[in-house]
């Protein structure tokens, strides 16, 4: 297998490995979803994960975020082995995931959704005894996060359901960026978006990288992947078929590796 030799040609191959999977296997009965897959996410990069349907992309991501438990194999965060019991564990460890259905409460406003499950309380007695939410501080923080990410929104007090698909996606991505300490994982963030909105979301993903957080991007959209990714992890039949870069390979090459028409 030449996957390892390929990672070495990546431009930032010397950067620190943030998240790593070693020889991870996941079987459901006699169905093998992951067949000894390796995975490496390096500091400061956008790593795209591509693969045909059933190649094991989503199972890999679920294994990395604790949503499924690997049958065997190892997952390491910053070099230390981790055993996530569930997605919450991964979140506590600093891994934020943007789910395809965005995990938003549409009737609540943008600030409420950004802080959903992590609401801020007032300082002092108001917070400790009366458990009062600090709505003002949450709005301010939300506004700051959105402007830091250079993402335009009509108003932080708008209900999420009043936003366009791209804006909603922006809120979901901003939430991940606001709370992630180690890395952000995004599942098909540009599916269902128009051209202009896709551009905005890609811009957002770049600004997360600029803030120093590595990003794992699961996508079917090859042009997007080639536009934004530093490296591309290609899944095939539950394994890592190759890791390539947009510079070293063409879209056709990657599709060929995905489908098995070409060896990596």
């Amino acid at each position: 297998m030449s996957a390892d030799s390929l990672t070495r040609v990546a431009p930032d191959a010397t950067s620190r490995v943030v998240l790593e999977a070693r020889n991870v296997v996941k079987t459901y009965g006699h169905v093998t979803a992951l067949d000894g897959v390796d995975f490496e996410l390096r500091a400061g990069e956008i790593l795209a994960v591509v693969g045909d349907n059933g190649a094991g992309k989503s199972t890999l991501i679920k294994a990395l975020t604790g949503a499924v438990h690997p049958t065997s194999g190892e997952i390491l965060l910053d070099g230390a082995p981790v055993h996530f019991k569930g997605p919450l564990d991964a979140r506590h460890a600093g891994i934020e995931t943007v789910y395809q259905d965005l995990a938003m409460a549409p009737a609540l406003d943008i600030a409420s959704n950004l802080f959903l499950g992590r609401e801020l309380r007032c300082q002092g007695v108001l917070g400790s005894v009366f458990r009062r939410l600090d709505k003002k501080r949450m709005r301010e923080e939300a506004r700051r996060a959105m402007s830091e990410l250079k993402f335009r929104l009509p108003s932080i007090g708008n209900a999420v359901e009043a936003l366009s698909g791209g804006q909603r996606q922006g809120v979901a991505v901003a939430r991940a960026a606001l709370f992630a300490r180690k890395l952000v994982i995004m599942d098909e963030p540009t599916a269902a978006l128009g051209v202009r909105e896709t551009g905005q979301v890609l811009e957002l993903i770049r600004s997360i990288r600029e803030r120093g957080l590595p990003v794992v991007l699961i996508s079917h959209n090859m042009p997007n992947v080639f536009e934004i990714a530093d490296r591309i992890h290609v899944m095939r039949l539950g394994r890592r078929a190759a890791v390539v870069t947009p510079q070293s390979h063409s879209m056709n090459d990657v599709v060929a590796i995905m489908t098995g028409a070409a060896a990596a």
Binding site: L88, D101, M104, A107, G117
Partner: peptide, 11 residues
């Protein structure tokens, strides 16, 4: 509003 979202954000 969205019980699945509530679960995913850790409520």
């Amino acid at each position: 509003n969205n019980p699945e979202a509530a679960r995913l954000v850790g409520i």
